Computed example of a mutant assay.
Amino acid sequence: MYFLEFAGEDDRFAAHEAASAAADVERIAPGLAVATAVDPDRVRGLAYTHRASELLGRTDADLESARVLLEAAGIDREGSVAVRATDVHGATGISTGRAERELGQVLVDRGFDVDLEEPDHVLRAAFSVGVLEGDQESSDGAGTDPADVCALGWLTSESVRDFGSRAPTDKPFFQPGSMDPLLARAIANVAGARPGGTVLDPMCGTGGVLVEAGLVGADVIGTDAQAKMAAGAAENLSHFLDREDPSPVGVVRGNWHTALGDGTQLPLRDDAVDAVVFDAPYGRQSKIETHRLEDLVSGALAEARRVAERAVVVADRLWIEEATAAGWELDATFERRVHRSLTRYVLVLE
């Protein structure tokens, strides 16, 4: 058993993404979840999960309970240790420094040497209290289940937090409205991007999602109806993927291909790719007429269904009726607040 520490922006979305790297993900408290198994290499590529740790045990979110748990726990490790504590969202009021010292002393009393610089093992102690959102959010987003948890575990894997190095404005080709790399990575992971898989974006724009999918090892294909965008996406993909060294998450970078093309008439055979992702044009910002926009998205959803068994669509509205008409089943929906006047909806389709 393992416990996961989320990045804190949207636990429901984080748990859905984490399922691409872990089995049987279950949220247990704000910012925390447990899983029956994890793929450490896949955890390195997650956007909304910071860490995965082998669960030693869990108890109430107070230092005394954590100390009793650690004193009673079976520990089958040798070598030096360090303790790292976190107070999720600052909600418990626990002094993390004190927690690290007292839990570290328990380990010293059990015969371990403490090495704060280069320990052989790191014990994570995560304290969280608050309300755990239900799987189906209410209209005001409020949750109903109170949580009071301390999770202790041995650090197994951490995500690589290098997203700032790929800010949209720092890429070779930039256009306003480009998706930030953190969300783009999460979208790619939810779609199932991984080594050996192929991800298609039929409205690839600047190629942001495809860059992130390629960095976690997937082969990627991008098409766009605008020659400027298809060429710009190729420039970005070449910049980040045409390298011999492993990607920041430690895998071989995926191969890529872009082309000028119509997302409603893809030059691909049936079931040609593993997943389709696309950021649909936004109604109020798009120059496309309303009826043409609906035809475009409906057509793209139908083509996506023909070439893949999974899709993730990002848009400024819920295209559920159109997705259902195209033969998709809705797996999940999420809201991602961009700014005051824009909310992105994420639809996960199977």
Rank of each mutant, 00 (worst) to 15 (best):
S139R: 14
V25C: 00
S298I: 12
V220M: 10
Y2V: 07
L155V: 08
D115F: 08
L342F: 07
R336C: 11
G217T: 10
V83Q: 02
A142H: 15
L63T: 01
L266Q: 09
G217A: 13
D316K: 14
D274V: 05
A272F: 12
D60Q: 02
D295H: 15
F278R: 07
T333E: 15
G141H: 09
T324Y: 14
E71A: 00
V88I: 13
V277R: 04
T92Y: 02
L55K: 01
R337L: 13
D242S: 15
T169P: 04
V211K: 06
L69H: 00
G205Q: 08
F6L: 13
D135M: 09
V346G: 10
R292I: 11
E329C: 05
R58H: 04
V277N: 04
E118V: 02
T92N: 11
G261N: 04
R166I: 02
V211I: 13
A72E: 13
G214D: 10
T264R: 15
V216A: 12
G79L: 01
G8K: 13
G196V: 04
G177E: 12
T49Y: 00
R44W: 12
N255L: 12
L215C: 10
G283V: 12
L266F: 05
D62W: 01
A315Q: 08
I28M: 00
N189D: 10
K171P: 03
W319M: 08
F173Y: 15
D201Q: 02
L182Y: 12
A22S: 10
D62P: 03
F278G: 07
A323N: 08
R42F: 05
Y2L: 06
V297Q: 07
E5W: 08
V43C: 03
A15Y: 09
A304M: 10
T36K: 00
A85C: 10
D279M: 08
L56C: 07
P40D: 05
D219A: 14
T144D: 15
S178C: 11
R305Q: 15
A72M: 08
T92D: 07
A66P: 01
P246Y: 07
A325K: 09
V277K: 06
L260V: 09
L342D: 10
S178V: 11
F13S: 11
H121P: 01
N189G: 06
L123K: 00
D39G: 03
E100T: 05
D10R: 06
R84Q: 10
D271F: 15
V68N: 12
A326E: 06
F3D: 01
V312H: 08
D270H: 14
F3T: 01
V122H: 03
G214Y: 08
C150P: 03
A66W: 01
T206A: 15
F173R: 08
P119V: 02
G222M: 11
D87T: 01
L210C: 08
V216S: 14
A193K: 04
F174R: 04
A315G: 05
H89Y: 15
V249D: 02
H89T: 03
R44N: 06
P202L: 08
T36A: 05
L296F: 14
A332E: 14
D201H: 13
P281R: 14
